[in-house]
Simulated assay, not measured.
Amino acid sequence: MAMTALADKGNILHIFDFKVKDGMGDEFIKRFEKFDYSDENPMHKSPAQVRDGVLCRASDDPNRFFLIGEWKSIAEHKEILPLIAELKPDYAPLLADGPASMKPLYVEVVVSTPQEILDRA
């Protein structure tokens, strides 16, 4: 199996830190997945999205999740966030701090292993 870098240098990652209401982790996953894979999700329609996001569950807290995705620009990702808010996805009420907590941290990918090095591994 060929290795690939997690993200490409120069792109940005969005990282959402979601804390859900106690005991609602499994339901959050179901609802998030339903919305994420639906035709309603505007994120999947943007050419600025490089790699689809992944939802991760914290190993030490079943009520904490991280959503990480790769984009070409912060501005283009921020442009779509109000559309998500308008749609009021049904996972949002499960967030411990409510829908207002749906604010990402943005980070720039500054080092990414070149493919030719990964191919030699």
Rank of each mutant, 00 (worst) to 15 (best):
Y37P: 01
A5L: 00
K72E: 14
D39S: 12
H14V: 13
D52N: 12
K9L: 03
D97P: 07
D97A: 15
V111D: 10
V50K: 10
G25W: 03
K88F: 03
D22Y: 08
A5H: 02
Y91D: 04
H44M: 14
W71N: 08
P104E: 07
V109K: 05
P99I: 15
G23V: 00
L81F: 06
D8I: 14
N63Y: 04
S46H: 03
I12E: 03
E116I: 10
K78R: 13
S46K: 02
S112Q: 07
I29W: 00
V50W: 02
D22S: 12
P89W: 05
A100Y: 10
H77V: 09
V110I: 13
L118S: 09
Q115Y: 09
V20Q: 01
K9S: 07
A92Y: 09
R120P: 01
R57Q: 13
F35N: 04
V110M: 06
V111H: 14
V110R: 10
K34M: 06
K88C: 05
V20R: 00
P62R: 02
D36V: 01
P62Y: 03
D52H: 12
I12T: 12
V109A: 05
L81H: 09
K103I: 15
I80K: 06
A7C: 12
L87Y: 02
S101W: 07
K78I: 13
I80T: 07
M102C: 11
K72S: 11
D61N: 15
D97V: 05
L13F: 11
D22V: 04
A121G: 09
A7S: 14
K34C: 02
F18E: 09
L81G: 01
P99D: 09
A2N: 05
A96P: 01
M1A: 14
